[in-house]
Write a protein that binds this DNA or RNA. Structure first.
Length: 574
RNA sequence: GCCCUCGUAGCUCAGUGGAUAGAGCGCCGGCCUCCGGAGCCGGGUGCGCAGGUUCGAGUCCUGCCGAGGGCGCCA
C-alpha cells in the first residue's frame, strides 16, 4: 500500500510536469480538506502566471477521479483534496488484510549499525543512559520492521586507565566481596571507593598505574580480574535491560576493549594518508572546518603524548570496523547532544581517511538532558544522580498504586504484570514523546496520568477496545470486510488509521520516535471521538456494527503495533 | 572570547516556507444517567527582541537578549 500522500503527489505530478517538469506539487495534510497541494503558488510565481488560474488548470488536468471526491482551488491558489469515500473504504479494507498495517518494507534497506546505551563497567546506570537506551531501542525496532539489517552495538566503557584503579580496588576488597557488591548493583559505591583510594593514597596510585600497564600488556592474571569486573557489571546491566524491556543482549556488547587491537591500524591508515600531524607531542588529525577559541584548527587526538590512545582513536576504529568489516551503510549514534562536535569531527576524519564508503552515512541521533521539575538536572531528593534501576522500580510501584486506586478490587498479584507494563511504558513514552533534541522535564504525576498524552492513556485506549471484543465474544482478528465510513467520526478515524505508514516513515526520516508518539496520540483521540458518537455493540444494524467492530479492531492493532515499535507493551486488560 | 543547540498559552509540549499557530494538563461554566469517563461543548490580547529575504516566516538569513552545552591529551 503506497502512502496516501505519495499517491496524491504522484497523480498531481503529471499535471505539474506539463507546466514545468519536476515542479513539486507540495502535498500536505490540510485543515480545510484531507490534503492540500501548495505547489501551484510557487510555480505560478516562477512561470509568471496567475496562481489561482494555474491551480484551476492543474486541478482540472490531474486525474484524481478514482481517489478524490472533490478537487477545489481555494484561497490564493491552494488545491484542496478531499478523498472519496469509496477510496477510503477500499484502502481500509486492504489495511485490515495487511499484517504490516500498510507499512511497506524499505525500498532500499541496508546494514545499519545502531550505537546506543553505552554504560560504563563498574559504574551505575543512571538517567543519562535512559534516553540513549530507549531511543536506540525504538529506532532498532522500527528499522528492523522496515527490513533493515540492524546491528545493535552496545559500546560499553570496559577499557582504559580507570581499570588500573578498579582492579586494584578489587584486589583490596577481595574478589568474593567485590563480586557481591557488584552483583547487588552497588556499582557507584565500588567506583567511589576505588576513586577515593586513588586520590588519597600515593602507593595505591602507583599500583593502579602499574596495573594499567599489566592490563595493556595482556598479563593473564590481570585480564582475569578485569573479566571478573566486566562480567559482574554486564550481569547487572542485563538486569536493568530486563526491567526496561529492551532488545539489547550480551551479544550486542562491543566495548572499547574490542577496538583496542584495532587502534594501531587506525594510526597506520591515517599516517599513510598523510593526515597525522604531531602537535605538542600527540598525534592528531585536524579535520577541516573545526577551530578552537583562537580560531586555530581543532585536533582530534588519536595518540596521546604518552603513546596511549585517546577516545577519538576508539571512535575512529569503530567507524572503520563498522563500515569495513560489518558493511554498514548507515551508522546511528544515539548519544547526548554535548558530544555533537566530537562526533562530527570523527565523521569528517573518517571520511577523509577513506573509511566511509561514498554512500555510507553516519548520523548523530542526539538528545537533550533529563531535567527535574525545577528545570535543573534530574536528581534524587538528596541531590544524587538517580540510579536507573531505582527509577524503574519506582515507576512500577507508582503504576501499581495508580491501578489499585482505579480498581480497588484488584489483587496485587494480578496487577504485577500490568503495573510493570504501565510503569515502564509511562517512563518510556514520556521520554520518547518529547522531541529528542530538547531537554525534557521528568514529572512522575504527568507521565503516569491516564488522561492526556501519556503511555497509560494509550495503553488504556487499547485495553478498552479489547474489552469491547471480550463483551462481544469475538476475536480481534475475526472481523473482516469493507467498512462504512459515512459518519464524520468514522471517516476521521479511518483516515487516522490509514496514516500509520506515513507516521512510521516520518519517524525514520527524522530519527524521532516522537513522531510516532504524536501519531498514536492523535489516533487514540480520533478513536475516542468515534467511540463517543458511534455506538459499536449497540449499533443500529448488523452491517454498521460489523463495520465499527472493524474500525475498533484496526485501531487496537495499530495501537499495539505502534507502541511495540516504541518498546512499550500494551496489555489487553488493565 | 569563539562555536553549537534551544527560547511558542499559567505549566509541559506539537507545529515538513503556506490559509484564522495547535494539543495535553490546570482553571471557570455548562452537558452526557452511553459499550470500563481515555468523556463532550464553550471560555486564551502566546511564537524572547529588532531588522532582512519571500507572493507568503514560528519555520530561512543577520544582529541583540536569555538558557544550556562544547572548546587538546576524560569518554
Amino acid at each position: 500500500m503506497p502512502l496516501m500522500r505519495g499517491l496524491l503527489e504522484a497523480r498531481l505530478q503529471a499535471a505539474f510536469d506539463r507546466v514545468e517538469p519536476g515542479a513539486d506539487p507540495q502535498v500536505r495534510p490540510s485543515e480545510r480538506a484531507d490534503f492540500q497541494a501548495n505547489g501551484a503558488l510557487s510555480l505560478a510565481r516562477r512561470v509568471g502566471r496567475d496562481p489561482r488560474q494555474l491551480a484551476a488548470e492543474i486541478a482540472a488536468d490531474a486525474s484524481l477521479e478514482d481517489i478524490c471526491s472533490a478537487v477545489e482551488v481555494s484561497g490564493p491558489g491552494f488545491i484542496n483534496l478531499t478523498l472519496a469515500e469509496s477510496f477510503v473504504v477500499g484502502e481500509l479494507a486492504a489495511l485490515a488484510d495487511d499484517a504490516r498495517l500498510g507499512v511497506e518494507p524499505s525500498a532500499d534497506p541496508c546494514t545499519v549499525v545502531v550505537d546506543y546505551s553505552g554504560p560504563n563497567v563498574a559504574k551505575e546506570m543512571h538517567v543519562g543512559h535512559l534516553r540513549s537506551t530507549i531511543i536506540g531501542d525504538s529506532l532498532c525496532r522500527v528499522l528492523d520492521f522496515l527490513g533493515y539489517d540492524v546491528v545493535r552495538e552496545n559500546h560499553i566503557g570496559d577499557w582504559g586507565t580507570p581499570f588500573g584503579m578498579l582492579i586494584e580496588h578489587l584486589v583490596d576488597v577481595g574478589e568474593k566481596e567485590a563480586v557481591h557488591e557488584l552483583s547487588v548493583g552497588d556499582l557507584d559505591m565500588f567506583y567511589r571507593q576505588a576513586r577515593s583510594s586513588f586520590d588519597g593514597d600515593e602507593a595505591f596510585r602507583e599500583r593502579a598505574r602499574r596495573r594499567v600497564v599489566l592490563l595493556q600488556s595482556g598479563d593473564e592474571d590481570t585480564l582475569r580480574l578485569w573479566r571478573l569486573l566486566v562480567a559482574q557489571s554486564v550481569g547487572y546491566f542485563d538486569e536493568v535491560y530486563g526491567k526496561l524491556g529492551v532488545l539489547l543482549t550480551d551479544d550486542d556488547i562491543v566495548g572499547e576493549s574490542f577496538y583496542n587491537p584495532l587502534l594501531p591500524a587506525v594510526v597506520t591508515d591515517l599516517a599513510a594518508e598523510g593526515l597525522l600531524v604531531e602537535s605538542e607531542g600527540a598525534l592528531c588529525v585536524f579535520p577541516e572546518g573545526f577551530t578552537n577559541r583562537h580560531g586555530q584548527p581543532l585536533p582530534l587526538i588519536v595518540q596521546k603524548s604518552d603513546e596511549g590512545f585517546g577516545y577519538a582513536a576508539t571512535d575512529l576504529a569503530a567507524i572503520r570496523d563498522r563500515v569495513g568489516r560489518i558493511g554498514a551503510r548507515l551508522i546511528l549514534y544515539v548519544v547526548g547532544a554535548p558530544q555533537a562536535q566530537h562526533l562530527e569531527m570523527c565523521f569528517a576524519a573518517a571520511r577523509v581517511a577513506g573509511w566511509m564508503a561514498p554512500d555510507a552515512r553516519a548520523v548523530h541521533v542526539s538528545f537533550g538532558s533529563v531535567l527535574g521539575t525545577d528545570r535543573k538536572m534530574f536528581r534524587s531528593r538528596t541531590g544524587e544522580t538517580v540510579k536507573l534501576a531505582d527509577l524503574l522500580d519506582e515507576a512500577v510501584q507508582r503504576a501499581d498504586a495508580a491501578l489499585a486506586g482505579r480498581d480497588p478490587g484488584s489483587d496485587a498479584a494480578g496487577r504485577a504484570e500490568v503495573a510493570h507494563a504501565v510503569g515502564v511504558g509511562a517512563v518510556k513514552y514520556a521520554d520518547l514523546s518529547t522531541d529528542r533534541g530538547r531537554d525534557y522535564v521528568f514529572d512522575w504525576d504527568r507521565m503516569l496520568a491516564f488522561e492526556g498524552d501519556t503511555g497509560p492513556y494509550l495503553q488504556y485506549a487499547h485495553a478498552r477496545i479489547h474489552s469491547i471484543f471480550r463483551r462481544a465474544g469475538e476475536g480481534l482478528e475475526e472481523v473482516r470486510g469493507r467498512p462504512v465510513v459515512g459518519d464524520k467520526a468514522e471517516r476521521a478515524l479511518a483516515l487516522a488509521l490509514l496514516g500509520y505508514a506515513e507516521a512510521v516513515d516520518d519517524t525514520v526520516h527524522t530519527w524521532s520516535p516522537s513522531r510516532l508518539c504524536g501519531y498514536l496520540f492523535a489516533l487514540a483521540t480520533a478513536f475516542t471521538t468515534f467511540y463517543e458518537t458511534c455506538p459499536v455493540l449497540q449499533a443500529a444494524d448488523p452491517d454498521t456494527r460489523r463495520s465499527r467492530m472493524l474500525l475498533c479492531a484496526l485501531t487496537a492493532r495499530v495501537l499495539e503495533h505502534g507502541l511495540g515499535l516504541l518498546g512499550i507493551t500494551a496489555p489487553e486488560q488493565m
